[in-house]
């Protein structure tokens, strides 16, 4: 849909500066694009390619490897229902089937009103809380079909859990920011030829570490 907004370009430059090689910022930048539009748009990928200094094809190559990146619009709420072994043992597959029935769509599809997308996902690391699911990457554990129905109602009505779930694409709501004056040492590896200063003690005898006392 769209290239990155001005505000997101500023975020992108901040992110790129944290890596010795700009291309490393690709995955976080694709997340920025997904946060902006709800999915990763072609224009956004072209824009990211320009920002990072690689070809658009390379950005698409990376993007298509990772299953969190959506190339097409998805629902406001993406329900990731786990059916991996620990959840399967305790009803994960039945929970998924219930969600499919309830919303009238198969896993991977989006409801007509663009509210919900269901995904049949692999282990999301909440196995003791099986069967578990994520809504836009927020965890909910020990979910039975009744609770799922209730969650869907709340999300539709904008009540209850809707308050704690941001739109699809938003991951962390607190971001790392390097303070002023920090991060100058993050430079291309080719520009660094010697050991960090505290690690140089071996070579010249007089330059031992100061803190030994």
């Amino acid at each position: 849909m769209a290239r990155l907004s001005e505000e997101n370009v500023a975020r992108a430059h901040e992110m790129i500066a944290r890596y010795p090689v700009p291309k490393s910022a690709l995955i976080p930048l694709l997340h920025v694009a997904q946060e902006q539009d709800g999915y990763v748009a072609n224009d956004a990928m072209e824009h990211i390619a320009e920002l990072v200094g690689v070809t658009a094809a390379e950005v698409v190559g990376t993007c298509t490897f990772y299953e969190m990146f959506k190339r097409h619009p998805v629902g406001t709420y993406v329900l990731n229902i786990c059916t991996n072994i620990a959840c399967q043992l305790l009803g994960g597959e039945e929970l998924l089937a219930h969600a499919e029935e309830r919303l009238g769509i198969r896993a991977g599809a989006t409801t007509d009103d663009k509210m919900f997308t269901i995904e049949d996902v692999e282990c999301i690391a909440a196995c003791t809380e099986a069967p578990c699911l994520q809504v836009n990457y927020r965890y909910y554990g020990r979910i039975d079909p009744d609770r799922l129905d209730q969650m869907i109602e709340e999300l539709r009505a904008g009540t209850g859990i809707a308050a704690e779930i941001p739109v699809h694409g938003t991951l962390a709501q607190t971001l790392q920011h390097l303070p002023e004056g920090q991060g100058d040492d993050i430079i291309h590896p080719d520009l660094i030829t010697e050991a960090p200063v505290w690690f140089r003690s071996d070579e010249p005898e007089e330059a031992t570490t100061g803190g030994a006392a």
Partner: peptide, 17 residues
Amino acid sequence: GSEVSIDIVLHWGAGAY
């Protein structure tokens, strides 16, 4: 306050076992 400087950068993935 020492001479030791270490930068830690948070990076995040996008779903691939």
